[in-house]
Design a protein around this nucleic acid. Structure first.
Lengths: 229, 229
DNA sequence: TAGATTGTTAATCGATTAACAATC
DNA sequence: TAGATTGTTAATCGATTAACAATC
């Protein structure tokens, strides 16, 4: 049996798939480029942009910028560079940020509440339409204009509203008991802020955002700096 | 001139430095291990733990666990494994999470407010003692028990309270005007949630936590999954 | 045209995984 | 002792950086 895992070799005569296995680090950098390009477009003579330009502003190499941008499918012009508006459109399209998608907030404690008020989500097409919690006291309240429902109701709303994304911000200990509600509601992607890896069916996408990992990096560098004194 | 950059070769006769250049991915994983170990210690017969044990729970390889743990300086015993409590202590010590450190929250909008109410910081020794903002309406209010001051006051409080850490959660556009206040206040480490790379003196540590990078990864995988249907 | 910039291949770098001798 | 697990070195893998021909 041939090992086809991660095969990057294009098969002759067969059109290549839409997304040819873009490295995660590249995808993570795209929003940075996007933010720069939006600032750049607002300036005088910002219609065109070169890799040198982007690299200087973001403190990266031109090689990396060129390689990253190539994944979005955009084509530049030698000597000239890229058309800024076109490049913005290409990145947004690649990320799906040109359409808005609805999502549920699961767990409306301190972090969940904060995230619901964070404009960065809506700016990027992620539209939180409702909150869910197990806490009786929170049910029926409004958070930044969205109502909070008992978690069981997700199984009604999910299929009804065709919502496939959940932002998970419950306490770590509650993760195992909450996950079944998500999977039974038709959720296909979970943005997980709990720090616990949830057990989900293989077709459900989980993206972990772990604040403690970042804090660990900050802490250890600080330790190092102080101990060097 | 010999190239000493990133030299890992220990010099004979000279005691090695405290922190021998631990890879960032390793540091980011340590909090995961810590969380597992704390759960593990609470169980029956959780006094000892092996790499196999940790790897199974977290879905990683034993090689990686062993390598990561070695960086913290802990020594295990063949056949037996590690002493759980000792391993917890070693990781906390490595990260500096065994002492608490004070920090300022700069920018108390939606995200800043949320982060101030997030118990995960205090659990890991990061103690937010005050908030700062430019918005007149917010000054003087209390957020989760901490008062909000005008940003200029940071230059008084920083040196007075010996606070060296700032959590930065102002709008991206406000970053350039806010940074001078931090550096003039004796801030040495910035946990940056703005998505903009701030210009700081070389001795100031900046750790970027960019939610949009994570969202980008989630979005692109979702795009891919939907387009495959 | 001449020169700057792209697109892409090759070289380098660093992290992960595999393997295995040492050890309790 | 026999066998499981550590500590560590070697092999693999993948991302970043460098280099350069193609191009407008």
């Amino acid at each position: 049996m041939p090992d086809r895992k991660n095969s990057n070799s294009p098969q002759p005569g067969i059109a290549s798939d839409r997304t040819p296995d873009v490295p995660a680090p590249t995808v993570r950098r795209l929003p940075q480029y996007l933010a720069f390009l939006q600032r750049h477009l607002a300036q005088e003579s910002g219609e065109q942009v070169s890799c040198t330009h982007i690299a200087n502003d973001l403190g990266q190499t031109t090689s990396q910028i060129r390689k990253d941008l190539a994944y979005t499918g955009i084509v530049g012009r030698p000597k000239v560079g890229y058309d800024t508006a076109e490049l913005i459109a290409a990145i947004e399209r690649f990320l799906g940020w040109d359409n808005s998608r609805d999502a549920f907030m699961v767990g409306v404690g301190a972090l969940g509440t904060a995230l619901m008020g964070y404009p960065g989500f809506a700016d990027r097409g992620l539209n939180i339409v409702a909150g869910f919690d197990v806490d009786e006291a929170k049910i029926g309240t409004m958070i930044h204009g969205r109502e909070v429902y008992p978690i069981e109701r997700m199984m009604d709303f999910g299929p009804e509203l065709h919502v496939h994304i959940a932002v998970l911000a419950v306490p770590a200990a509650a993760v195992p008991e909450v996950i079944p509600f998500l999977t039974l509601s038709g959720i296909r992607a979970i943005w997980n802020f709990t720090g616990i890896q949830p057990e989900v069916p293989r077709n459900v996408i989980v993206e972990n955002t772990d604040l403690s990992g970042s804090l660990a990096l900050l802490s250890s560098r600080l330790e190092q700096a102080f101990s060097a004194e």
